[in-house]
Deep mutational scan, measured.
Amino acid sequence: RLIESLSQMLSMGFSDEGGWLTRLLQTKNYDIGAALDTIQ
C-alpha cells in the first residue's frame, strides 16, 4: 500500500528526498488526501 500511495504522490510531482514523504504517508495510514492536507 505504501508503494502505491508513494508512486501516486511522486507522479503528482512530489519528491521523497530524505524519505520525508514516506514517513508522512505512514503517519497518515497511506491516505493521500490526508497527506496533501498536511502539506498545505
Rank of each mutant, 00 (worst) to 15 (best):
L10G: 03
L6Y: 03
D37I: 15
R23E: 14
S15M: 10
Q26R: 08
Q26M: 14
S5P: 04
L21G: 01
Q40M: 15
A34C: 09
R23C: 14
N29T: 03
Q40I: 14
K28M: 13
D31S: 07
G33K: 14
F14Y: 14
L21F: 09
D16A: 08
L6S: 00
L24W: 04
Q26E: 15
S5R: 08
A35F: 08
D37V: 12
G18L: 13
I39D: 01
Y30K: 04
S11Y: 08
T22I: 10
G19V: 00
S7I: 13
Y30I: 02
S7N: 15
D37E: 15
S7H: 15
D16L: 03
D31F: 04
N29F: 08
I32Q: 04
D31V: 05
G19A: 01
W20D: 04
T27E: 15
L21V: 04
M9E: 01
S11V: 12
T38W: 15
R1L: 14
E17G: 06
T22P: 01
I32F: 08
M9F: 08
Q8D: 03
Q8F: 13
L6K: 00
E17S: 08
L36H: 02
S11L: 07
D37L: 13
L24F: 06
D16M: 03
N29E: 10
M12Q: 02
I32D: 02
I3M: 14
S5M: 12
R1I: 13
N29Y: 10
I32A: 06
L25P: 01
G19S: 07
L21D: 02
L2P: 07
D37M: 11
A35D: 02
A35Y: 06
T22D: 02
A34F: 06
I32P: 05
F14K: 03
L2Q: 08
F14P: 02
L36W: 08
F14M: 04
T27I: 14
A35T: 14
N29H: 08
L21W: 03
M9K: 01
D37K: 14
S15C: 10
G18Q: 07
G13Y: 02
L24P: 01
R23G: 07
S5N: 06
Y30T: 04
L36P: 03
G18A: 07
T22Y: 04
L21R: 00
D31Q: 06
Y30M: 03
Q40F: 15
S7E: 11
L25N: 03
G18P: 03
D31H: 07
L21Y: 01
A35R: 01
L21A: 01
A35P: 01
Y30A: 05
D16F: 06
R1K: 13
Q26I: 15
Q40L: 15
A34T: 06
Q40W: 12
R1Q: 12
G33N: 15
T38P: 00
I3T: 10
D37W: 13
G13M: 02
T38K: 08
G18Y: 09
E4L: 11
S5F: 03
G19L: 04
W20P: 00
T38G: 08
L36E: 01
W20K: 03
G33S: 13
L36T: 03
D37H: 09
S5Q: 03
Y30D: 02
K28A: 15
T27R: 09
I3Q: 11
D16K: 04
W20L: 03
L6E: 00
K28R: 05
L2R: 05
Q40K: 14
L2A: 05
Q8P: 01
W20Y: 10
D31I: 09
M12G: 01
S5G: 10
K28F: 13
T22K: 05
F14A: 01
R1M: 14
E4A: 06
E4G: 03
L10D: 02
L25T: 03
S5K: 11
M9L: 12
Q8E: 13
L24S: 00
R23W: 06
I3G: 08
G18K: 08
T22L: 05
L10N: 06
L2N: 05
K28E: 09
T38S: 15
L6V: 05
G13R: 00
K28T: 12
M12R: 05
I39R: 00
G18H: 10
E4S: 12
L2V: 07
R1W: 11
T38V: 10
L6T: 02
M12H: 04
W20T: 03
A35E: 02
Q8I: 15
D16P: 01
D37Y: 13
E4W: 03
E17Q: 11
G13A: 04
Q26N: 09
Q26S: 12
E4H: 09
A35W: 09
S5A: 14
S11Q: 13
F14H: 05
L10A: 08
S15A: 09
L36Y: 06
R1V: 11
I39N: 00
N29A: 10
L2K: 06
A35H: 03
A35L: 10
D31P: 03
G13K: 01
M12F: 09
S15R: 10
M9R: 00
N29W: 12
N29D: 11
G19T: 02
I3L: 12
S7R: 11
F14W: 08
T27Q: 15
T22M: 05
W20H: 04
Y30N: 08
G33H: 14
A34Q: 12
M9P: 00
L24R: 00
G13Q: 05
I32R: 02
L25G: 02
E17V: 12
L25E: 02
D31E: 09
G19P: 01
Y30V: 06
L2Y: 12
E4I: 07
L21Q: 00
S7M: 13
L24M: 06
G13I: 07
Q26F: 12
E4P: 07
N29G: 10
I3A: 12
S15V: 12
D16H: 04
L24Q: 01
R1P: 11
A34W: 09
L36G: 04
G33V: 15
D37T: 12
R1H: 11
E4F: 10
R23P: 04
G33R: 08
S11H: 09
F14V: 03
E17M: 09
E17K: 07
K28G: 06
M12T: 05
L25F: 04
A35Q: 03
F14R: 00
L25S: 02
G18D: 13
L10S: 07
A34N: 07
G19Y: 08
L21T: 01
T22H: 02
T22W: 07
N29M: 10
D16Y: 04
D31N: 11
R23V: 13
S15Q: 10
K28W: 11
S15E: 07
G18N: 12
Q8M: 13
I39E: 03
G13F: 06
M9W: 05
L2T: 04
S15W: 10
L24V: 04
G13D: 05
Q40Y: 15
S15T: 15
S15P: 08
L6H: 00
G18M: 07
A34L: 14
D37A: 14
L24A: 03
L21H: 01
S11T: 10
L24G: 00
W20G: 01
G19Q: 06
L25Q: 02
T22S: 13
Q40A: 13
W20E: 05
G13E: 04
S11M: 14
L2G: 05
W20Q: 00
R1S: 11
L36A: 05
T22V: 06
D37Q: 15
Q26A: 06
L10P: 00
E4R: 07
S7Q: 13
Q8R: 10
R23Q: 15
I3E: 15
I39P: 04
L25I: 05
L24T: 00
L21P: 00
A35N: 05
A35G: 02
T27S: 12
K28N: 13
E4N: 10
D31M: 07
Q8L: 15
G33F: 15
L6N: 00
F14D: 02
R23H: 13
L2S: 04
Q8S: 08
A34K: 11
M12Y: 06
Q8K: 06
I32L: 07
L10M: 10
L25W: 04
G33A: 11
A34I: 09
Q8H: 11
D37P: 02
